[in-house]
């Protein structure tokens, strides 16, 4: 008997469910849960992570993120506008910036700006936060510039024409008409940038940290070293999630609002 398309899809679904259940059962039966819990979920170690992982590490991660994102947003807007400029020198400068900082791994940028430049110029960073946040902002700025440029280009051409035909100059039209619409369009990719940035702050610790600037990842690694147990890393992961999940939810809410407002 030939199966209809709907029946075939139904059987496929049943077999996927069955297989998934079997995998779960196998995991439950064959994994040594006690050993796993001992290596990764020791409650006494979990408790020891607090409150420092929040009051010190998460606070620093947040500071690096906010500085990096604020700087990245400002640089991104500036370079996006330069990429769209009529003046060729601006376009080239912006394109070079974007290609350079997008093409070099963040770790390398961090090392060059954190160690290379200070050695070369006999200079030292005035503030340990700036030392980590500036490279972060420079790299984020390159990505955000491309995001903002795409958003500006996604605003229909007629919007600029209408604004100009009412006598607004180019900068005025950009600020009041085009950029507000572009920002609404890029809320989802911009949220993505922010989440990536939160996670990228974990790389700053390769520059070496003092107890004052320790971030969540370094805090977790130090915890592993002192306890010889993976639990601090699990806690660190959960703290990152506690930061990123509300953010993505908030962005989803803003996206719905923006859609509702312009419908």
């Amino acid at each position: 008997m030939a199966l209809s398309k709907r029946q075939k899809a139904q059987y496929l679904r049943y077999s996927v469910y069955t297989f998934s259940c079997l995998v779960l059962v196998a995991l439950a039966l064959f994994v040594d849960w006690n050993r796993l819990a001992g290596a990764m979920f020791r409650w006494d170690i979990v408790v020891k992570q607090f409150p420092d992982i929040l009051t010190k590490a998460a606070k620093n991660t947040l500071i690096f993120t906010v500085m990096g994102f604020a700087g990245g947003l400002a640089l991104g807007l500036l370079f996006a506008l330069m990429r769209l400029s009529k003046i060729r020198a601006y376009r080239w400068f912006a394109a070079t910036y974007i290609e350079v900082f997008r093409g070099i791994p963040l770790v390398v940028t961090l090392l060059i700006l954190g160690f290379g430049i200070p050695i070369a110029f006999q200079w030292s960073w005035p503030n340990p936060y700036l030392r980590g946040a500036v490279p972060l902002a420079l790299v984020a700025g390159a990505y955000i510039a491309e995001t903002i440029r795409a958003g500006i280009e996604a605003v229909p051409k007629g919007q600029m024409e209408a604004a100009r035909s009412l006598g607004m100059g180019y900068p005025r039209a950009m600020v009041t008409i085009i950029i507000p619409q572009a920002l609404r369009i890029i809320i989802p990719p911009l949220t993505n940038e922010l989440v990536l940035l939160i996670k990228d702050t974990s790389l700053i610790s390769i520059l070496g940290v003092t107890s004052g600037t320790i971030d969540i990842t370094r805090f977790g690694r130090d915890g592993v070293n002192t306890t010889a147990n993976a639990t601090p890393l699990i806690v660190a992961g959960l703290v990152y999630l506690a930061m990123t999940l509300p953010l993505t939810q908030l962005a989803a809410l803003m996206e719905r609002r923006a859609k509702a407002a312009s419908r």
Binding site: P156, G158, Q159, E161, A162, A163, R164, S165, L166, G167, I177, P180, Q181, R184, A261, S262
Partner: peptide, 18 residues
């Protein structure tokens, strides 16, 4: 300044949606 004295109406309206 010149444009502010010339009104323009477009085929696609081009109202500001926000």
């Amino acid at each position: 300044t010149a444009r502010s004295k010339i009104g323009m109406v477009f085929q696609q309206f081009n109202l500001f949606p926000h």
